[in-house]
């Protein structure tokens, strides 16, 4: 009996329960893994040190210790803070992440929203990913702190500016695949051919390389990681909109940062790296429901490594410089990419 059949026999609420649990795991476990592998270890190795070593073997339980520490801390509200806005902001940011993860399929049947019946896919994803801007602006405004305000405003300007190249980069993929359905994009890559060779399929990183690079840069900016970390800029704005947060709410921002990195990497791997597909195995096969999430995880870890490698190597752009990069370079290139893709799509 195949997994699909077992799953189909469950009641709707049971399926939903499993999917909610899986979404939590997909966001939080991946975020935890990224924190440990990249923030604690890879970056430490780049700086000739070991990182946390005491909690668990090789410090693997450090994150749990950190979570425990943050939960115990007092949840401080600044005296003049707008209490509701200040308190709700981290949840808004995290909600955007959870909404984004639902569009990502990790196998032929391992999905959170039924992509057989809807073509929303990437369209929904791009729409909900902008919600986090609201949360950040709320945090910056609600803190009643000048540094936070500057950070929140910078973040808003930056996230809106980079939303555009992000979307335009995706448009190229959508044109080439001919669909907005995330699962169909994966199938299109798996069954595609490049110059008549179908061995590795056609992951769009090969034909949409420009879009991929733009997507990565815009993703880096959306995540507010260096070189685009002007909104948090710990050496001048003292972590910007997060300055006044402590305890649990700070933890939510912290998790949100890494979870969003993981989810964006998942989206990127679906769009450009073939999602759960690996050459040699039929992407529609049953086994991919189990293997698919693992394949996705590997791709996510690889992409986020790039993100954090860049983050810990580069200095940050100034606010005007990063705006110039977005409007004067990324957006025109992305538009040109769309035009070229469209012409080639019609021509072939």
């Amino acid at each position: 009996m195949s997994t699909t059949q077992v799953f189909a026999e469950l009641a709707y609420w049971q399926q939903t329960g499993i999917r909610v649990g899986a979404a939590l795991a997909a966001v939080l476990l991946v975020a935890g893994a990224l924190v440990y592998m990249h923030l604690f270890k890879a970056v430490s190795f780049m700086q000739s040190r070991l990182g946390p070593m005491e909690a668990g073997p090789y410090g693997s339980l450090q994150l749990l210790a950190e979570v425990g520490k943050h939960i115990q801390k007092e949840d401080i509200f600044p005296a003049k803070a707008d209490r509701f806005v200040f308190g709700a902001a981290p949840f808004v940011v995290l909600a955007s992440t959870f909404l984004l993860v639902v569009v990502v399929p990790a196998g032929p049947d391992a999905w959170f929203i039924d992509h057989h019946n809807s073509d929303l896919g990437i369209y929904l994803g791009l729409a909900v990913s902008s919600v986090s801007v609201l949360g950040i602006l709320m945090a910056g405004w609600g803190s009643s702190n000048k540094y936070s305000l500057l950070g929140g405003l910078r973040a808003t300007g930056q996230l809106i500016a980079y939303e555009l190249p992000l979307i335009l980069a995706v448009v190229g993929v959508v044109i080439q695949a001919g669909t907005m359905n995330m699962a169909d994009i994966v199938y299109a890559q798996a069954n595609g051919e490049i110059f008549g060779l179908g061995i590795v399929g056609n992951p769009y990183i090969l034909t949409q390389g420009v879009a991929f690079i733009i997507f990565l840069i815009a993703m880096q900016a959306e995540l507010a990681q260096a070189p685009f970390d002007m909104p948090v800029a710990e050496s001048e704005l003292v972590t910007g909109y997060m300055t006044e947060y402590s305890g649990m709410r700070f933890l939510l921002f912290f998790i949100g940062e890494f979870a969003t990195a993981g989810v964006f990497a998942a989206v990127a791997s679906v769009l450009f790296l073939g999602g759960w597909y690996i050459p040699g195995i039929d992407p529609g096969a049953d086994v991919m429901n189990l293997l698919g999430p693992l394949v996705m995880l590997v791709k996510i870890v690889g992409l986020t490594f790039l993100v954090f490698w860049t983050r810990f190597t580069m200095p940050r752009f100034r606010e005007d410089q990063l705006q110039r990069l977005a409007w004067k370079f990324l957006i025109p290139i992305a538009l040109a990419n769309i035009v070229v893709t469209g012409i080639l799509k019609v021509a072939f």
Binding site: Q47, S48, R49, A226, P227, A233, S235, T313, M314, R316
Partner: peptide
């Protein structure tokens, strides 16, 4: 100086 403009790693090299 690198930390002031946002790069984190050089200061670790400096301390090292």
């Amino acid at each position: 100086m690198a930390v002031q403009v946002g790069a984190v790693t050089p200061v670790f090299f400096a301390f090292r």
